[in-house]
């Protein structure tokens, strides 16, 4: 494994290495590729006229009464009308292949990503996109914090003390299979229609998984470390505070990152409960006006916020836990 060396050299070298900025490697090119590939498929479907394009966008109606410029009609129907006009010796309609309205092209979504923040909402009292986002982030934050405040200590206790584990885990196992949104109506009845029930849904969706995952992580702490600390005089509370918690901290941090992602997935359902709010309100509103490019933009923003915060937390984790050897690539 390691070389036996008494020189101070290797230790210093290891430390310096850990801080070097990563140069673009095969791995980071692959990361880029994993994003570019789906984008490429999207571009192909949007910009290459003979791939899919099941509709025709009418440019000039010709002799067809009900065609309007800009109207989307099915390809078959359009062909029928062209035939019909030919047969009646009228001007055939003009048009080009198009995709359905629910699949905007990348450039439209890109434009929407920018304009969504700069255009006022269509309803006068509706929140701006950034306001909706901020509201969503707050709901996630409180849901996750409340869940963690109870879930992490309980998970550690369940993992460390067999009795606590046996007493809590069967119920947790049962409860985590109950879909959190099923408690929506109940949450509204108890907590009102505003942010209370939304936070509650996120807590219910996160908490039971959290207890089980944290308990598992606690159990995976190397037994030798606990035993070594016991021979050194650690017991009871100081054993937990000085050995168990610091011992699992890097893994606990990783668990929390995964669970935060979990909490995000409950966001949309949670925000539909009671009065629709946050980014979900924005999305449903935009879909109602058929501004699908805005819908996509909002979905992408959710992804960017989630992925971006995870990347940041990953970096922060490396800085926080310099001793952690099992850290992943991110």
């Amino acid at each position: 494994m390691e070389q036996a060396s008494v020189e101070p050299g290797p230790a210093v070298a290891v430390r310096a290495k850990a801080w070097r900025w990563p140069r673009p490697s095969r791995a980071s090119l692959m990361t880029l590729g994993s994003f570019l590939l789906p984008l490429l498929v999207w571009c192909a479907v949007s910009y290459v006229p003979f791939i899919w394009h099941p509709k025709v966008a009418v440019e000039a109606p010709g002799g067809v009464d009900y065609f309007q410029p800009g109207m989307l009609v099915d390809r078959d129907e359009y062909a029928q009308q062209v035939e019909a006009m030919r047969a009646q010796h009228l001007a055939p309609p003009q048009g080009h292949p198009a995709n359905p309205i629910y699949l905007p092209a990348p450039h439209e979504v890109a434009r929407a990503l920018f304009t969504a923040f700069t255009t006022a909402p269509e309803q006068r009292d509706a929140p701006w996109l950034h306001e909706s986002l901020w509201h969503s982030i707050q709901v996630i934050f409180w849901g996750f914090v409340i869940s963690s405040l109870i879930g992490v200590p309980l998970g550690i206790a369940a993992g460390h003390f067999t009795t606590v584990g046996r007493l809590t885990e069967p119920f947790n196992e049962f409860f985590r299979y109950l879909p959190a949104p099923a408690f929506g109506a109940l949450a509204v009845a108890v907590l009102g229609i505003y942010d209370g029930p939304k936070i509650a849904i996120i807590v219910i969706g996160t908490f039971f998984q959290q207890v089980l995952i944290v308990a598992n992580t606690t159990r995976k702490l190397e037994a030798t470390l606990v035993e070594a600390s016991r021979t050194l005089g650690a017991k009871g509370w100081s054993l937990i505070a000085h050995v168990v918690v610091p011992g699992i901290l890097p893994d606990l941090y990783r668990d929390q990152r995964v669970l935060l992602g979990w909490a995000w997935t409950y966001l949309i359902v949670a925000e539909l409960i009671g009065t629709s709010s946050g980014i979900t309100f924005f999305i449903t509103q935009q879909a109602r006006y058929q501004h699908f490019e805005n819908v996509y933009a909002a979905i992408i923003i959710i992804g960017v916020i989630g992925f971006g915060s995870d990347l940041l937390l990953g970096r922060l984790g490396r800085w926080l836990f310099p001793w952690d050897r099992s850290r992943d690539g991110r």
């Binding site: 190397e222 050194l232 011992g247 001793w323 050897r325």
Partner: peptide
Amino acid sequence: RGMVFQGYSLFPWLTVKHNVMFGPRMS
């Protein structure tokens, strides 16, 4: 009774110095 284990039983989150300080600090 002090014990030295076969596996690496040092606390990975503590520096060498703090590992050695662990026992005295506990007492």
